[in-house]
Design a protein around this nucleic acid. Structure first.
Lengths: 341, 341
DNA sequence: CTGTTAGCGCTTTCAA
DNA sequence: TTGAAAGCGCTAACAG
């Protein structure tokens, strides 16, 4: 009912081997032959069965993308970009969404990617050694997005420097009590940025001659509500901050709301800085760190694909220049101003 | 190097057919035999090659999910839910993100799902007859999410009624000049809700004895910026509205911002209603229509899977009760109030 | 309950 | 430049 390679071969008057070669654009096919095959395939509306091809060749032309969430801006952006790059290259995307801690455990235990992908992309997860081992055991190239590890391809930003920049800005405005609202660094579902951004925050304070104060570090849930709750705690404490650095725009939104409800003006009473530069941040005039998410995704995807293409040639390509760091941009809007007198 | 079914068979001292049966949980395998096979498979860390299985059985245990975007709340939520349901059922998810008009055209032209999925899920796209035909030509069950069409499984909300509710609320508060900010109904990348919500808006007005005024209908881009631009136009026109119904929360956010910048108070001067109830809407006290996105996704996914399972038995199951409509909930928060005197 | 065997629809030598 | 033929690693009759 649906055409197979034999039907095409018959119609074109060649063998199935020739059809296979012609359709895949391999060399050493007479162009007249190729034309005939193409015409026949077209007439029969033929496409090769990917499973048969994969079984025969051992190549899956599929990449697995592992994310901790899909419904957060960063990851949605990543998925979108990776999908389109893979599609363009003729690859399928198999999406693995970890979801929660249990899902994560099951994932690394079962390793559902086994025998079904040529390469793997992992976005922003903090992986322990066992998990890296599980990934390595796949025996396939792995690209990391938003984190790095020696021996793996990676694309990321410099979270430490970006956070330092952001806090430098606040210090430069005369702020001395600068709070941090961040992700929980112990959370098993955590991703890497929180650790780095906390580090950059502390470094900037020290450079500015300010000793980090644990009371000003609020490590919540990397959500809007988390940011809001953290801001509430900060505001009701003795000696509240005059500035807040949130490790994500979402947390900053929560903080902005809480400040508003508390009757505090931004930036006159309290300055706020976010991280990401989501679309809504311009709307709310949030000063923030813009990170190039699509660029990171593009970069890691294309380098993984290159590696896969090379693998095809010499069997075991080793990534050169495995760790790429992309620049961030500090975007000053209306949520930051001089420290109040 | 990596174990095959033969290795397992040898180790367990049975034939490969028995291994296949035991591992798939088929009946008519002695439990002692099954145990031995399981032990052998476990020892060799064996998993079946999906491609070989698919080639031999004709079943792909894969579902294709087609979305127009991944980085919007609704679709991200859908993807997340569908992924987890499929994973639980042992199915792979192949994600197809149309992206832009060109991507959409290419998609329906090439039909990259051909020969690689057992079933298809389509989220919220307005499809023309040719596109439905292309989908039907796959000869696989198709589930629609957020739209419906006779002969297809579908799960959706009643957009007309939900919009009517929202506008009824405004009418009940005494508003007479009620604007609509909506998606472009002619946009080739449009999805279905805008048409329905516009319809409900007009119906509610008429019921309230108000003749719809085209000058108050602003069909923008279904984005934050679109909502903002639309609000700006509405506010600067002669006889501006006292209430705005936005067809999505995102557009409502844009409108809220514009109102704020224009020095208008919400809800004292202007009331605003959104649609979706995204997480940020509670933060901004937006009165809105809550739609159960995960429930819709769960519903359509599970019914598609059921159909696929039945197909396996009797070859050609026909969907009973194909169209499911899930309830919405109107959530009154702080962005709506009595019409100004 | 278990084994034998014939494919599934391709890709890839190897020969010609 | 092309064809023949041997798999790829499973599933699914069919036989026993």
């Amino acid at each position: 009912m649906v055409a197979s390679i034999e039907d095409v071969a018959r119609l074109a008057g060649v063998s199935i081997a020739t059809v296979s070669r012609a359709l895949r654009g391999l060399p050493d096919v007479a162009s007249s032959t190729r034309d005939r095959v193409l015409a026949a395939a077209n007439e029969l509306n033929y496409v090769a069965s990917p499973f048969a091809a994969r079984l025969a060749s051992g190549r899956t032309t599929t990449v697995g993308l592992v994310v901790p969430f899909v419904n957060r801006w960063f990851f949605a952006e990543v998925i979108s970009t990776v999908e389109s790059e893979l599609r363009t290259a003729g690859f399928d995307l198999l999406l693995y969404n970890l979801g929660d801690e249990e899902g994560r455990a099951r994932f690394f235990d079962v390793m559902p990617m086994r025998k079904r992908v040529d390469g793997v992309l992992v976005a922003s997860l903090v992986l322990d050694d066992d998990e890296f081992k599980a990934l390595t055991a796949l025996n396939r190239p792995v690209g990391l997005l938003g984190l790095e590890r020696s021996g793996f391809l990676s694309a990321r930003i410099d979270d430490v420097a970006a956070a330092r920049n952001a806090v430098d800005h606040l210090v430069g405005l005369g702020h001395r009590r600068i709070a941090l609202i961040g992700g929980d660094t112990d959370d098993p579902m955590a991703f890497t940025p929180p650790l780095r951004r906390l580090e950059g925050y502390r470094a900037a304070l020290r450079t500015g001659g300010i000793e980090p104060d644990q009371a000003l570090e609020r490590l919540g849930y990397f959500t809007v509500d988390g940011g809001r709750a953290a801001a509430r705690e900060l505001l009701t404490a003795a000696d509240p901050p005059t500035a807040i650095f949130a490790e994500s725009d979402e947390m900053a939104y929560g903080a902005l709301r809480e400040l508003h409800d508390a009757g505090l003006r931004v930036p006159e009473d309290v300055s706020v800085v976010g991280f990401d530069d989501q679309p809504l941040s311009e709307l709310w005039r949030l000063t923030t760190v813009r990170q190039p998410v699509a660029d990171q995704a593009l970069d890691i995807t294309s380098r993984l694909l290159t590696l896969l293409a090379e693998d095809e040639l010499d069997g075991d390509a080793v990534p050169r220049d495995p760790g790429v760091v992309l620049p961030t941009e500090f975007v000053v809007r209306g949520s930051t101003g001089p420290a109040p007198a």
